[in-house]
Amino acid sequence: MRATSPERSGGEAPRRNTAAEARTAFAAWVEEAPGGRSFGQIVVRPLPEGGYELRHAADAGLPDGDLDVHVDPREAREIAKLTEGGEYRPLKSSPNLRRGWLLRVEGERGLYVAMNYLYPSAVVHWHLHRSGELEITTYRENAARQSGIYKRVQRLSDEGVQNAARACCEDAVCLKKTLWDVDENTPLESERGEGEIPCPEPCSIFVSFARRVRLFERENKRDLDAIGLSPSEKEDLSALVEAAATGSVPLAREAEFEEPLNERRMRYRRLTLVPKLRPDGDAATPEEG
C-alpha cells in the first residue's frame, strides 16, 4: 500500500495491515468517549451493553423513539445516499447528510463497515493522519496523471486552483480537511476545514470542477466583452435573474457544474465575478437596506 511503503523493511517482513489498525484505533477512540465523538456530521458513541450507536449530530438530543432505528451496518449506505430533500449525494462529506435515523452496530467491524458507507475512506485516512503517515498528493501530481476529458486540468493556473478550492472544498460545501496543496511549494490559501476527516488528494468532484474552471479561464482570455464579462459569466447572470424573477432560484444538482445555478459554480463566481461587478466594494459585505 502506498501509505505503508515507508514502513517496509524487506520482502520477508510481515505485512502491516493499515486498514485493520485503523478499524481498531477508531473503535478505541470512540470507546474513550462515553458521551460520543463527533465525526463529520455524525456522533458515534459506545453503548453500555456493547456495540456502538451512530446518529446525526443534530439528532443527538432526540429520544430514540423519534428516529428510524437500523441495525445492519450496510444500511448506512442508504442513509448516506440522498439528502433530506431526496437529492443524490455524490460527495459523502458534503454537509447535507439527512437526519432522522439511528444506527446500532455490533463490534468494531460493524462500526468500520458503517463508517465506510457514511464517510468512505475516512476512518483509515483519519488513522494515518493521526500517526503522521498519510500520504498527500498535490493538485499538480493529481492533474499530471489525468487523461481523456480531464487532461485539460493540467493547464489550470495556480490562481484557478486556489479559487476552485475555495469554491469547492471549504466547510460550507465539504467537511473534509483539505491537506493537499497546489504543489510542493504553493500552499492552498483556502480555509482547510475544522473537521476530523482528512482529504489527502483532490477528489473526482474537485477534478470535474477544476475542468469547468479551466474552461472559464480559457474564455476569459479571448472572449471578454466591452465591460469585461465572459460569455459564461453572462449566461450565469441571465440564468440567475430569470430564476429569481420567478420567485425561486432552483439550484442545479451538486456536481452539475455545467449548469449556471450550481452552488459551487456560484461560489466561484462570487470570488471572480462579483469583484468585477463591484470593483470598489467588498464582495463579502452585503449592501445595507
Binding site: 500500500m1 502506498r2 501509505a3 495491515n17 493499515t18 486498514a19 485493520a20 478499524r23 455524490p90 460527495l91 459523502k92 465506510n116 468512505p120 475512506s121 483509515v124 485516512h125 494515518l128 489527502p200 488528494e201 477528489c203 473526482s204 470535474s208
Partner: peptide, 15 residues
C-alpha cells in the same frame, strides 16, 4: 471512478 471510495483509495480500506 466517480464516487467514493475512489479506486485511488480503496486498497487502503482492504484488510
Amino acid at each position: 471512478w466517480k464516487e467514493e471510495p475512489s479506486m485511488r483509495h480503496v486498497l487502503d480500506l482492504v484488510e
